[in-house]
C-alpha cells in the first residue's frame, strides 16, 4: 500500500533543523549522494543537544566542498582562504576567548594545504573543535589526488592509481597532541552526533574525522558505485573500536575503516597554559585578555 507523505503538511511544519540552518540557501551545492549534508545535520543536531549558547558559537571553513559548510549553518560563519580555517579560528578564539570556535572543513583543506596549521594547533592544544570531512579527494576542483587518497585509488591527477602514502588522520592528530580524537563515517549518524556533542563538552584541540562519500568524483573515478553503495560499504567495513590505537587506523583502498573515539583525555589548553604561566611569573601584573575581547571600550 502506498501512503502519501502528506507534502501539504510538510510544507507547513518546519524541518527540525530550520533554526540552525540558513534555509534561504537550501538546496545546497553538494551533489546527490554526497555525505557532507549529513555531517552538517549531525553537527547542528549536536549543537542543539549540547544546549550551548549558539550566539557564542562560530563556525569556520576553508575552501572546497566541505569548505561550504560554514555557509549553511546559522551561526557566525566564516568561509576563509584555502587551508586557513584553523589559523583563522585561532584568531577568533584568542581574540574573544568566550567563544566556542568550531572548524568544519575537508581533508584537502585541513591536512593538505593546511596541514602545517593542523599539527601546530593540535600541538598547542588550541581550544578548537575540528570536524574534518574526508572524502579522499579534492572534490570541488574535479577529483584530484589528496593527502588522504588511499594507495592505488584513482584520481584525476593519479590516473594510473595513487602511489603516495596517505595520512592516517587520527594518528596524525593524536601524535600531534590532540586530546580528543575520533573517526566515524557519514553512516554513523547517531554516534557522530553524540561524538560531536561529547567533543563540545571537552576542551582543547578536539578532532573528529568523518569519512563521507564523494559519488561524483572519488567513487566514479574508482568505479565504486554511488553514494548509497558507499554507505553500504561503510555498513559492512566500518569497525568500531573505541580506545583503539590510532596507529592502527590507516585506511587502505576498500579496506576496513576503523571507527570510534580513539583518544579522550584531558590536557590543559593553550589559553589555560598561558594564563597559568603568566600568573605564576607575573603575579598580579598579569592582565589576561578579557573574555569578550581586547580593549573594546577605550580608556
Amino acid at each position: 500500500m502506498t501512503v502519501e507523505a502528506r507534502p501539504d503538511y510538510a510544507e507547513t511544519v518546519e524541518h527540525p533543523m530550520t533554526p540552525f540552518l540558513r534555509m534561504d540557501r537550501i538546496p545546497h551545492v553538494w551533489c546527490p549522494g554526497c555525505g557532507i549534508g549529513t555531517v552538517v545535520r549531525c553537527f547542528a543536531s549536536a549543537l542543539e543537544k549540547s544546549g550551548i549558547d549558539l550566539d557564542k558559537v562560530s563556525v569556520v571553513s576553508g575552501i572546497g566542498c566541505a569548505g561550504r559548510t560554514a555557509g549553511y549553518l546559522k551561526l557566525d560563519g566564516f568561509h576563509t582562504a584555502h587551508g586557513r580555517a584553523i589559523p583563522f579560528a585561532t584568531g577568533l578564539k584568542l581574540g574573544r576567548p568566550e567563544l566556542t570556535v568550531t572548524v568544519l572543513s575537508g581533508d584537502g583543506d585541513l591536512v593538505g594545504i593546511g596541514g602545517n596549521h593542523f599539527i601546530h594547533a593540535a600541538r598547542r592544544n588550541l581550544d578548537l573543535l575540528v570536524v574534518l570531512i574526508n572524502n579522499f579527494t579534492y572534490g570541488m576542483t574535479g577529483g584530484q589526488n589528496g593527502p588522504t587518497t588511499p594507495l592505488s585509488a584513482r584520481s584525476s591527477t593519479m590516473p594510473f592509481g595513487n602511489f603516495e602514502t596517505p595520512f592516517n588522520l587520527p594518528h596524525l592528530a593524536a601524535s600531534s597532541g590532540a586530546p580528543y580524537v575520533a573517526r566515524w563515517t557519514s553512516l554513523h549518524v547517531r554516534r557522530l552526533t553524540w561524538s560531536i556533542e561529547e567533543a563540545l563538552e571537552r576542551k582543547g584541540f578536539r578532532f573528529i574525522e568523518v569519512v563521507a562519500p564523494c559519488p561524483v568524483l572519488y567513487l566514479r573515478l574508482n568505479k565504486l558505485g554511488d553514494g548509497v553503495q558507499r554507505m553500504r560499504y561503510y555498513h559492512d567495513e566500518a569497525e568500531i573500536r573505541n580506545g583503539a590505537d590510532p596507529g592502527d587506523a590507516a585506511i587502505d583502498f576498500q579496506g576496513k575503516i576503523l571507527c570510534g573515539v580513539f583518544v579522550d583525555e584531558e590536557r590543559p589548553t593553550y589559553q589555560e597554559l598561558m594564563d597559568e604561566h603568566y600568573g605564576n611569573v607575573l603575579g598580579d601584573d598579569y592582565v589576561p585578555m578579557p573574555l569578550e575581547g581586547g580593549m573594546l571600550g577605550g580608556g
Partner: peptide, 22 residues
C-alpha cells in the same frame, strides 16, 4: 601568539579582528 608561518599569522589576525579586538 607566534604562529607556525606567515600564512597562519595573517589568517589569525583576520580571524581575531572579527571579534572586535584590534
Amino acid at each position: 601568539i607566534q604562529m607556525e608561518d606567515e600564512l597562519a599569522s595573517m589568517a589569525a589576525v583576520v580571524g581575531a579582528s572579527w571579534t572586535g579586538t584590534k
